[in-house]
């Protein structure tokens, strides 16, 4: 509930989201999505939801990123947009 800290993390989250959908290399996009998940986890810790924060850090930022990277290794990392 600290307002300036919350605002700074929210701005970082929005920047990460915009970068993740505009960058052309898919591996970079997935890495930026992992950073987005960790910023989200920091924000939930700040709001008081600790259980949700460490579930997000382990499940979404860990296993989600690994699943994305495995899929990109099996397919291709080039994209047109």
């Amino acid at each position: 509930m600290i307002t300036p800290f919350n605002l700074i993390i929210l701005i970082f989250v929005v920047i990460c989201a915009i970068t993740a959908i505009t960058v052309k290399d898919l591996l970079s996009a997935v890495m930026i999505l992992g950073a987005y998940s960790f910023f989200m986890c920091l924000m939930w810790t700040e709001m008081g939801a600790v259980d949700v924060a460490f579930t997000e850090a382990s499940v979404s930022a860990g296993i989600g990123t690994i699943l994305f990277i495995a899929a990109i290794i099996k397919t291709t990392r080039r994209s047109k947009d």
């Binding site: 989201a17 993740a20 959908i21 898919l26 996009a29 997935v30 999505l33 987005y36 998940s37 989200m40 979404s60 989600g64 994305f68 899929a71 990109i72 397919t75 994209s79 047109k80 947009d81």
Partner: peptide, 15 residues
């Protein structure tokens, strides 16, 4: 148009 980008968008939406 890229399908991985669509999945990334779905992830951001749910979060």
């Amino acid at each position: 148009r890229n399908l991985v980008k669509k999945v990334i968008g779905m992830n951001i939406f749910q979060t």
